[in-house]
Structures are given as structure tokens and as C-alpha cells.
Amino acid sequence: MNIITIILVLLVAFLAGMEGILDQFQFHQPIIACTLIGLVTGNPVDGLLLGGTLQLIALGWMNIGAAVAPDAALASVASAILVTLRGAGVSEGIALAIPLAIAGQVLTIFVRTLTVGIAHAADGKAKEGSFRAVEWLHIGALMLQGLRIAIPAAIILSVPAELVTDGLNAIPAWLTGGLAVAGGMIVAVGYAMVINMMATPKLWVFFALGFALSAVGELNLIAMGIIGVVLALLYLQFAPEFNQGGGGGGNSNGGDPLDDILNDY
């Protein structure tokens, strides 16, 4: 492990930490973060496989309103470091990802509380009409979120490799086997969170249809995606709530509201 690798790993960790709060470019999503760590440490395939598996587990982790979700950033970065540089297996990496996600959640709650102070400092600078100061405070808070992941990553990197390997070897086989089994089932929680948000009594039929086609059919995902889009369009055309004229109310001329906006635009 040379100095350039260390710097690149910390850079990826910093990026993932910032994205963990911004939620824009998605550098904190396992499929990106683990792959990047794999690339900079020279074990790209391990990173890719870990990223793919963790991505499935993290499907339903989303920040809604003021609620803070389990943290994908720390889970991906820390377990990717353990797998690519510290000799942990991919299944061990997955088992460790869950406690890491909870640790990351605690850390982001801590930083989000610290930034209340930053908001008050911004109030003070606003009274002076100083745009520059408000900008720097804002960027400073972003740096804190980056450090939230970079510091734990540095700690994991600085612990001697033997210590980590010994620790991992000390985990008994029944535990790693059991955790691997559980790892395959945890995706269900992610699915359930997503379903829970979308499901209305009317929409369960589409879930049933998808399940039946998938369980007994051989269609690949692209074909399934096309079927899904067709179903969605058909639903919008035929569902009674969209066919009462006036497009659900609110538009005076009763046409398609999308057309109205586009015409005005």
C-alpha cells in the first residue's frame, strides 16, 4: 500500500461523504463508491462485486423529510477498504456493512446537529450583507460531511493489516455462514420500504403481475422494463380518475395539463 493509494482512497471517501448529504451525483451509492475504491486499490473486480451486492441491500435507504436513513457512504467505503486492502471476503464485507451503515447514520446525525451552529453563524454574517461569508460557511459544512467518512477510512487504513485479518479470522464459521445467509435475505427490507411508499390497494395487482411473470418466466429485465412502462401508460389512459374530463380538475380548458404547460412554455 503506497502513499498514492492512501491519498486516492481518502479522496474517494471524502467524495462519498459529501455526496452522502448532497444526494446528487450518487458517489455515495455502493455501486459507485465500492467500484471506485476497488479501482484505486487495484482490486477492481472485488470492488465491483461488493458494490453490486451492497447496492441491492441499500435499494430502500432514502432520506425522506427530516428522517435520516442508514448511511450508504460509510458502509460502502469502509467495507470496500476491508475487502480490497485488508483481505476480508466479499460476504464478510456485506455482513460488516450493516453495522457500518448504522455507525455512519449516527455520524451524519452528529454533523447535522453541528451545522445548526453554522446556520446561526450564517444569520450573523447575513446581517452584514456578506455573501462571501455565507458561501464559505456553507462549503465548510460540506467539508465536515466529507471528513465524516474520510476520518473513519483513515483509521481503518492505519490499523495494521494483521490486526484486521486476525479479527476477521476470529469470527467463527457459523456466524459468517449465518450472516451470508441473512445478507441474501436483507434485500427484502429494501423492497418492503420502497413498496410501502408506493403501494395503494389498486397498485398491488401490478406487483402480483410482476411477481408471476418473473417467477415462472425467462424474460430479462429490459423486457420487464418495457412491459412495466406499457402497463403504466395503459393505466393512465384507462384509469377512471384520469378520465373525468378536465384532467383531474384545476385546468380551465380541460385539456391535457402537460400540453397546456408546454404550450405556455
Binding site: 420502497v194 413498496i195 408506493m198 398491488w204 401490478f206 408471476a212 403504466a232
Partner: peptide
């Protein structure tokens, strides 16, 4: 609504 129909279907898949 459209996105939810697609989403529920894909979840089933």
C-alpha cells in the same frame, strides 16, 4: 401514479 405503477411492477419482478 404512472411511476408508482412501473415501480410496483418492477418490485414484483
Amino acid at each position: 401514479q404512472g411511476a408508482s405503477v412501473l415501480g410496483m411492477f418492477i418490485m414484483g419482478v
